[in-house]
């Protein structure tokens, strides 16, 4: 199993990944509370970026409404915890189930009736907006006035109920990001991965080769939704408050796709690189400006805009593919390890 996962992965790539993992593991030891929260955000965006990339990068289906799955995942686990004291580790079953159901309904409507391209993207926005407005009036989770979890006592870490310090959340998110990376790597070289990429490149040709396009597109949406909802669970227990206006908002959907776009759509490392660049640099810049006593509201958004512009103009495939080539990590013969 492990041997097959490693097959065709360049040795230098493995060494680089190992070094990165060690660095991330050691990070909390020397990071301040603020830096640790930035580290958490980077890992969070790396994870959701990876999840979104399954749909767009692998299967070529553009979703602009992934905040839907974050929100559903967050609300389901939080509501079960607050109302019934159910551990999020059990509650995430409901989160994943509901998100998969939402993804399946969306996918069925779109793929059964041939909604594709831009119209598919608009449908994903519509579903997220529908959830936002619906949750505003959903009194079981306090509607638009916001749903609050009892604030955690940071002195002790209760992993079972996800009540604890930022450091616990950092390591949890790190474990999830590593798992997502490995899972996506395995998916990409499975039958499903080949079929997704074929559908992305040419649905007609894929179908002529015996690929059930409907089934594999559905699988992409449902798997991506399930993964994204897990990030929602962590989000809810980390921030302890949920507002439909925020969590389902389209800006959240856009924010989570910037990482993979800037890092490199369809690549494994792209979402990670993108999250590191965007979140790391934006927060770092804000900090530097704070130190200098300059306060400019909206500087993060301007920074995102400039990054996007530069990438679109000079690196249309994202930062990672040319970087990988420079580092000699591009895919080796017969494998896609360098991704």
């Amino acid at each position: 199993m492990i041997a097959r996962l490693l097959e065709g992965v360049p040795r230098r790539g493995l060494v680089a990944l190992g070094a990165l993992l060690l660095l991330l593991l050691a990070f909390p030891a020397f990071a301040s509370g603020y830096l640790l929260s930035v580290g958490f955000l980077i890992l969070y965006f790396a994870f959701v970026g990876q999840a979104w990339n399954i749909m767009m990068g692998f299967a070529g289906q553009l979703s602009l409404g992934h905040s839907l799955y974050v929100g559903l995942g967050a609300y389901a686990a939080a509501a079960l915890y607050v109302h019934f004291g159910i551990s999020p580790w059990i509650g995430l079953g409901a989160s994943v189930g509901i998100a998969m159901l939402a993804g399946a309904v969306l996918g069925f409507l779109a793929f059964r009736f041939g909604v594709a391209g831009v119209y598919f993207a608009i449908l994903t926005i519509a579903f997220a907006e529908f959830a936002r407005i619906g949750f505003d009036h959903f009194s079981w989770v306090q509607g638009s006035s916001g749903f609050f979890l009892p604030v955690a006592n940071y002195a002790t870490n209760d992993l079972w109920n996800l009540r604890g310090s930022p450091r616990m959340f950092y390591y949890l998110m790190l474990a999830m990001s590593v798992a997502a990376f490995v899972a996506c790597h395995a998916l990409l070289r499975s039958r499903m991965g080949y079929y997704w990429q074929a559908i992305r490149e040419s649905p007609e040709a894929a179908q002529a080769l015996g690929v059930n396009v409907f089934r594999y597109k559905m699988a992409a949406v449902v798997i991506s939704a399930a993964m994204t909802s897990l990030a929602g669970v962590v989000f809810a227990f980390y921030y302890n408050n949920l507002f439909p206006e925020q969590i389902f908002h389209i800006s959240r959907s856009i924010e989570l796709i910037l990482g993979p776009i800037i890092g490199g759509i369809g690549t494994l490392v792209g979402p990670l690189v993108g999250a590191l660049l965007l979140t790391g640099l934006a927060e770092g810049m804000r900090e530097v400006m704070l130190q200098l006593g300059v306060e400019v509201p909206g500087v993060k958004q301007v920074f995102y805009g400039i990054c996007l512009l530069l990438v679109v103009m000079f690196l249309p495939h994202g930062v990672w593919p040319p970087l990988a080539r420079r580092l000699g990590l591009e895919r080796g013969a017969g494998g896609r390890g360098g991704h």
């Binding site: 039958r191 080949y194 079929y195 990429q197 074929a198 992305r200 490149e201 040419s202 007609e204 040709a205 894929a206 080769l209 015996g210 690929v211 369809g266 017969g334």
Partner: peptide, 18 residues
């Protein structure tokens, strides 16, 4: 209608998986 983003071998693997 080649799968332009895939290698020649990967193109053929998609068919061979059937």
């Amino acid at each position: 209608k080649p799968f332009v983003g895939l290698t020649v071998l990967d193109n053929v693997i998609v068919g061979a998986l059937l």
